[in-house]
Each structure stands twice: as C-alpha cells, then as structure tokens.
Amino acid sequence: MTNKIKAGIVGGTGYTGGELIRLLLNHPFVELAFATSRKDAGKKFYQLHADLIGETELCFSEQIQPCDVLFLCLPHKESKPWLEQNSVPIETKIIDLGNDFRLDGKFNDRDFVYGLLEINKEKIKKANAVANSGCFASAIQYALLPLANQQLLNQVFVTGITGSTGAGVKLQETTHFSWRNNNISAYKTLNHQHIDEIKLTLEQYNQSEVQVYFVPWRGDYPRGIFISATLPCTESLEKVYQIFEEFYKDEVFVCISKSPISVKQSVNTNKCILNIEKQGDMLVVHSAIDNLLKGASGQAIQNMNLMFGFEETTGLKLKPLAY
C-alpha cells in the first residue's frame, strides 16, 4: 500500500481552494494537513465551503505546517511575494495555481515547469515546482496544440465564455446575481492575461508566430468554460480528426467527440472535451472544460499525481453534472 503524502494549501477559502480541499480529502494517497486563511483562521472548512459538511472537522490555520506538497491558491501576482516572505524547504514540492511563474519559471533554487501536463508530462514527473496553466489558456491550448504540432496555425480567432466562479469568490459588480443573471458581456477583449502563455506554448510547437485574437465572455452560470477557435485550414475534416486523435491518443482526460458538445458534459470533471467542425476552408474547434477542475484544481491534482508517481487519474474519477 502506498504511504500517504501530506498536502497543504495556502489560501484555501476561494473557489479553487475549496475544490482542492474536496479533492484532497477524497484522494486515497493524501492526508490534507492544513489550509491557510488570512482572515478566516479558526473557522471550520465547511463554514466557508458548505459542501464539506460531514467530510471533515479541520479548521483553517494561519501558519503553514510541514508537508510533502504545497498548493498555492493565492490571487494572481501574490505567489512570488509569498514565497519571498516564507521559507519552504526545497524538498517540499510546490504547485502554484496563480500566474506568477507561467512565463518565467525561475525562482531562487526552483524552476517551475509549466503545468499543462499533456505536453510536459515527463518534465512534471521530475519537477519539484509546477506552474498550473490558466483556465482559458488550458481550454484554448487543448483546442489548438494538435494543429500547432503540424505547423497549421497562423491567425486564430477565439471566442470563449466562462462561469462566474472564474472571477473568484470576492463579490464584484459583474459577479453578483442581479447583474450576471440573464446577462452576457465581453471583457478584456483582445487583451486577456492568458494570451501570452497561450502564444508561448503554441509557437514552440508551430515553430513560427501565432496570432491569437481572443474575445472572452462572462456567462450567466456558475462554472464551466466553452471556447470556439476559428482558423483557415485546407486539410479535410477527417484528416483534422486524425491529427487530434493521434496527438491525444494517450491522454485519459482529453475526449474527442464527433457529435456536438456542451459545457455541462465537462462540469464537475477533469475532462477536456473537443469537437471539430469545418465549412469550406474554415475550421472551428470547440473545447469544453470545468474552469475549477481541468482549468485549476483538478489539473493541479493531476500534476501532483505525476510528481509523486501515482496513476494520474487517482482521485479524479468524477461524474459530470449531466442534468
């Protein structure tokens, strides 16, 4: 029997922190040692994450404790300052769910590996630090990486919609019910923070510059991402499907459907579900993920599994919310 590793979470009160707690509590090879909170220390987990009632009596703490793996679930641009102010033993593996180390992974004696594991699996297995990929970045890269691998990308036009959990737990004008319900709006048009990490990965495979024009939308629902990437392509639809099936043939959480897909197929799972359509010389790749799982906490657990030699599906066999 595999010995359990100890896991800790820095910043456990947000949506991704809550999902991580849920997954770690149910992981057969992990003991969740602690989760920190700056303002809710002493409160039980289920006082902030109501779904955890009956699952644990653990409370949020102020300080970190010794652990084998540390998850950083801090707001963007706060992971690096936190590491500068707190000493983490080099033998403790770190998985950062923020965007601090996605473009430049070097930090003191650590070198963060970009955590899109379908392309960096062997590096992640040997890593002591991983920078989880962003939620929109993951959905878009899954849709385009097989084409980049065949040097078929030049200009790509992407539209994507995300649930309100993508904006974080802190109440904002564009996340409260009366604004978001029965409402859709664009935001950060052509200027989303994930574009740089998307281009960096795609261009490594495409071996030339890729122009990504991305318009994200706020959806009137809690969780899930659906993107559609449109680009010129002279290859037949059958050939494109072959390219995708070959690229993802060994990836258990990437599913390729020849039937139309919807976001609900992916919600509450660690799956990315892809569908491809073609009219004339224009190709459209649709991609659906759960922004809190495959786009954040689920992917972090999958990375942890690789780093510690567990089967990568361990603790991630989740049922979608089909209805």
Rank of each mutant, 00 (worst) to 15 (best):
residue 43 K to L: 09
residue 283 L to V: 08
residue 88 V to T: 10
residue 35 A to C: 03
residue 220 D to M: 00
residue 81 P to R: 11
residue 178 S to I: 12
residue 157 F to T: 03
residue 46 Y to E: 02
residue 173 E to I: 07
residue 41 A to S: 15
residue 53 I to Y: 10
residue 234 T to K: 15
residue 286 H to L: 08
residue 8 G to F: 02
residue 31 E to F: 05
residue 134 G to P: 06
residue 167 A to F: 06
residue 154 N to V: 09
residue 286 H to P: 00
residue 308 F to H: 09
residue 34 F to L: 10
residue 286 H to S: 10
residue 110 R to D: 07
residue 278 K to W: 08
residue 108 N to V: 11
residue 221 Y to Q: 12
residue 100 D to F: 04
residue 10 V to F: 05
residue 180 R to C: 01
residue 34 F to D: 06
residue 45 F to N: 07
residue 8 G to T: 11
residue 290 D to K: 01
residue 17 G to I: 00
residue 262 S to Y: 02
residue 270 N to C: 08
residue 43 K to E: 08
residue 273 I to T: 05
residue 271 K to W: 03
residue 205 Y to W: 15
residue 248 Y to E: 01
residue 257 S to D: 15
residue 96 D to E: 06
residue 125 K to C: 10
residue 57 E to I: 04
residue 310 F to S: 08
residue 66 P to A: 15
residue 143 A to V: 05
residue 124 I to M: 06
residue 190 L to A: 02
residue 123 K to V: 01
residue 274 L to D: 07
residue 268 N to Y: 04
residue 267 V to M: 04
residue 318 L to I: 08
residue 252 V to P: 00
residue 264 K to I: 07
residue 75 P to Y: 14
residue 262 S to P: 00
residue 190 L to G: 00
residue 277 E to V: 09
residue 8 G to D: 11
residue 41 A to R: 08
residue 252 V to D: 02
residue 278 K to A: 02
residue 182 N to M: 13
residue 56 T to L: 09
residue 301 I to L: 10
residue 6 K to I: 03
residue 167 A to P: 02
residue 47 Q to I: 00
residue 30 V to M: 03
residue 164 S to N: 11
residue 127 A to D: 12
residue 248 Y to T: 05
residue 35 A to W: 05
residue 77 K to G: 10
residue 28 P to D: 05
residue 255 C to F: 06
residue 177 F to A: 15
residue 183 N to K: 11
residue 196 D to W: 04
residue 307 M to R: 05
residue 90 I to V: 14
residue 228 S to K: 12
residue 237 L to W: 09
residue 3 N to K: 13
residue 305 N to D: 08
residue 42 G to M: 13
residue 14 G to W: 00
residue 179 W to G: 05
residue 210 V to C: 14
residue 38 R to V: 02
